[in-house]
Design a protein around this nucleic acid. Sequence first.
DNA 1: CGTTTGTTTGAAATAACTCAACGGGAGTGG
DNA 2: CCACTCCCGTTGAGTTATTTCAAACAAACG
Lengths: 222, 222
Amino acid sequence: MANHATQTSFALRHFRRSEFLARPTEHSDNLYRIQEGWAGQYRLLKDGRRQITALFLPGEYCEPQWLLGASATLPVVALTPLRAYAIPLDQISRRPDHLGDSAARVFSGMLKAMRGRERWIVNLGCLTATERICDLICEVYDRLEGTGQTIKNRCAMPLTQYEIADIVGISPVHVNRVLQGLRGTGIIELRNRRLVLCDPAALRHMSGPPATVGSSAAIAEP
Amino acid sequence: MANHATQTSFALRHFRRSEFLARPTEHSDNLYRIQEGWAGQYRLLKDGRRQITALFLPGEYCEPQWLLGASATLPVVALTPLRAYAIPLDQISRRPDHLGDSAARVFSGMLKAMRGRERWIVNLGCLTATERICDLICEVYDRLEGTGQTIKNRCAMPLTQYEIADIVGISPVHVNRVLQGLRGTGIIELRNRRLVLCDPAALRHMSGPPATVGSSAAIAEP
DNA sequence: CGTTTGTTTGAAATAACTCAACGGGAGTGG
DNA sequence: CCACTCCCGTTGAGTTATTTCAAACAAACG
């Protein structure tokens, strides 16, 4: 799908697990397009609590905010061994064939990132532990499907239960119990970093009620 | 500070409590600058659960995303009676004296909004009920202080306990008990929609540990 | 083969929720 | 001015979801 020549015209960088793609203090002069592996943006509190605020999957651009000239606000770390193309910022506007109209791309990228963050706020604020985990699984699967990385309800799932815990805001051992529950009811299979959605409909049903459409009442507290 | 002529050159619109500033379906052709009153962006789930994803306070621009030409993604509602200037989108680029370089303004506005969302993800994912409420109070106070709307540790606080609950993701009655605890220890006073920070240092201390700086270890799970 | 990293399990503790009811204040209409 | 309602804050008691601690186990790794 992608032009092979333009793909290889950028430097392919390798990262080990836990290696930084970005740190808040240092200024980054390029943008990454992930080729293989998963990355995560997170925030760490002084007492050790950690919250992962975004996931970056293969095929996705990591941190479009950087295009705005600012340095990263939160660290981004490789959650698995990772390969990514480093796209120098100053080349982006000169390559309409590759990144298209840069301003429009950046805008739409930021809007998408914003919606992702809003989605997770709702997730963390409203949903139960089981719903959050099901929703995470659905989101990951859908994003991988969007870039053709799924086959017949199967996809990669390299996240540690500790990492899932830091995404969905519940404790690691509770993540374990919820996952066991899901496996026990035959909704998913999850072994060896591979995920199978045995019953996608049931899974979506468990990931919380859908949002209402716009025309509903502003405030309805019975 | 603001030029009176430019201020009054935009239409001042009034909203009753619970009235919409924006609805997801309809296309909005202007941006609001809030003059007085509070607004909130939220999402409502089919079973009645609601999560407020952003607050808009006097002096702030409501929904800079609209500048990108897209319609609103989530509804925005007046949480109090509200007055706001409606700034037509097509006038923004023609008025460098008022909004400055529009592209740069929009970018920085989006970045700020993004950081706000990230902050709330961390808040909802990591903090306890008391910490979340203290953090909300701190954030609101700081934002009001930034636009000169505080006097000697006092500011407005028109949010209902139900609304606070839908911001911090805990139940209304628990919000009540947490607030009583804070009042009981003399850290804050909160009566008649007015807030007093009796002990700002203690309040900040209760709003959770600060974030680590960038140079810390990527993963530290003891 | 030992060491580390990740998963699984149990039992006790606790944070937060639900349900239900009461009370005060602010409007509103008679 | 009273009675009414509605919205909001406050309480209490019982329940549930989730956490914590601790330990054992399995799998990956050098």
